[in-house]
Design a protein around this nucleic acid. Structure first.
Lengths: 214, 214, 214, 214
DNA sequence: CATGAATGAGGCTTCATTCAT
DNA sequence: TATGAATGAAGCCTCATTCAT
């Protein structure tokens, strides 16, 4: 049989899957790492979940740790970008942007998969401090920055009174973070099933203290 | 020689070590588990740190998991009691009690060892959900209860205005928890080195929203 | 080069070993278990004897106990079949079949490897009664049944007089079993080096009591 | 309380136990070794069963193997003596003595404890061939000798016809041994619950072939 | 004589990683 | 690129044995 009869040898079908492999593996890794923790997760299970053999993972990642690092990196990028966008998008009505943002966050925190990364990072922070630091710098710090920008804007526009920005950021992130941990990590019942109400309550308590008084 | 000068034979010196062993082991376990995570920690290292042989640990704890459970249990008791005490102690001036409590908490959060347990719990929550739940029920829920009692008191006494208690509790715990994670887990610089100021800021932001308005 | 000279690609050479592995391991296990007993045998020695690494055994058998069970099972099948065959083969002249069978058994009992399984089973019977029972049901009971059939046939054909079948079977198996233990387990000198004579003696003593009298 | 009121201080009560200790330990060892096999039996369990501490066993026996050896030795003596007695006691009517002896044996084989030693010996024969040999020489060989003497007597007195003594002995011991293994080791149902009948059957089958013919 | 405490040595088992195909 | 097979290193746990009292 002559090669000419073969369909596009320059771009065979099986290539398509192969090109998607790294992402599939990362996805599988996230699920396994998230569910069992880094140490307890087995490469074999990740492979099975990604639909290939244990050995094949090593064609794409040098080691288990490398896989972990790639995973964090992959998950970090989009978040950072999102943060960036948010900050700039809210220049017109920063206070409202904050509220929208918080509501969106509350909704997304309902997705256990989203917490998998932070939980994972916390879990490995002892053994891989650099990864924890990386995550902080590229995610938490970015988010903090974006929030601060919004808050700064709100203060500049007179939407809220002046106060320590650091404290305000904490007051925004902290409760959400805590509720998320409480719910998805510790298994508690939660206000998260009604994110809208959750945020309303939080803003009710929080923002009223920051409103301008007559 | 008068019998009175003899050390009580019912409590011989050599026993002392043996009786203290479980605690010594738990302490060592906390340090190793805390530093490396449950899976990565090696029984041998725990033993070495506790000053005995690997096998000796098994005289006191049935298995690595049993050791983990005992550790959580041991660390939980005192915290729960503390919470109880606080709640009742603050009946006279609940708002002030809250402030004092927050300051104390901020001080203690500076001790990395204190965060070791929550961090550990978060890390293993995937593999041992029952332990995570146990921790929530016996520590976080208790703390939440104690706080709610204080807040309820403050509202009853007219020290702060009425608002959703759940939200208020979150607003208290969340920022501190977040700051602690930020600092000791993710390795960030922090406002925690000046707990007094940290709390002042937080209360400034938070409580002003809860103050009674004319 | 003609395709015909190529080794079938569907059965590559390197596969051969892998497919034979379980049997090789079982063989090695039999030797080690037989020589030292189940508990004293070390997986590492079995592996070495089978020509692979300790860990490789676990690719084929879940645990040491599973290996033991597989071993018994593997050794049981053929025996049971043999018994079946014998029973049916002797329908023409049962008494003669008995004699032939006994001789064959006496010959085979000379092979120490053959006794390894029963000896092993006896050794572990305390810890694994189910295995002992399994062995009895699938081997000894089958053999007993086959013998009884022969004896029944011999009685029906008037070759021997009627007597308690159970007792006769015992009288056949018992002495051989005893001699085998005596020789290969207890290390005694034996009549087994002359199986022919051994059987002649046994039949002389035994069958003369079962002959029909005038 | 004056010493006078104490019973015989020169022979304190606790001494009595101490003097019996070795035997108690051996008894406990027999039960544990018998139930689990030598390797699987734990010194601690033996100690517990004997009512003392693990360490105390080492006051009486140098090691686990030494304990095993002492156990075999202790169990061997009486049996050998019994055999001796039997042989001489049966000089008047050897055939009847044989019958009596077989019945007694059948009764005793009902006691699982009695089989514990042979089973144990078979189990360890691979690892401790000397012990197996020792057992054969001191027990089985003695028994064989005693039986042979009886049989010789019976032949001399014309109670049974002449035949190969070795074969006759096997024909006596074998079936009983087999039935005992079948029952107490392999867990089979058995004719042993009616020893009297068992022996009657066996002798019916066996001795009729040895009777003198007209 | 007796024991609670302790340990060194060793076995089973797992798993990340490599290799031959 | 893909994988079934294989392994070395390591960890948990057990247990016979010793020691200090």
């Amino acid at each position: 049989m002559s090669p000419a009869t073969l369909p596009k040898p320059s771009e065979p079908r099986w290539r398509r899957r192969a090109e998607a492999r790294p992402e599939e593996i990362l996805e599988a890794a996230l699920e396994e790492f998230g569910a069992r923790g880094f140490e307890a997760a087995r490469m074999e299970d990740i492979a099975k979940r990604a639909g290939l053999s244990k050995a094949a993972i090593y064609l794409y990642f040098q080691s288990k740790v490398a896989l972990l690092e790639a995973l964090i990196e992959a998950k970090v990028g989009p978040l950072a970008q999102t943060a960036q966008m948010i900050a700039s998008a809210g220049s017109a009505d920063p206070l409202n942007a904050l509220r929208t943002l918080a509501t969106a966050a509350a909704f997304r925190l309902n997705d256990p998969a989203l917490l998998a990364v932070p939980r994972l990072v916390i879990g490995i922070s002892g053994r891989f401090p650099e990864i924890a630091t990386y995550y902080r710098e590229h995610v938490v710090e970015k988010a903090r920055g974006a929030l601060e920008a919004l808050i700064e804007g709100a203060m500049a526009k007179g939407q809220i009174r002046r106060a320590d920005k650091n404290a305000i950021v904490r007051a925004f992130i902290g409760p959400l973070f805590f509720e998320a941990m409480w719910t998805h990590v510790l298994g508690g019942e939660t206000a998260l099933h009604d994110p809208q109400k959750l945020i309303k309550q939080q803003f009710d308590v929080l923002l009223s203290g920051l409103e301008l008084r007559a």
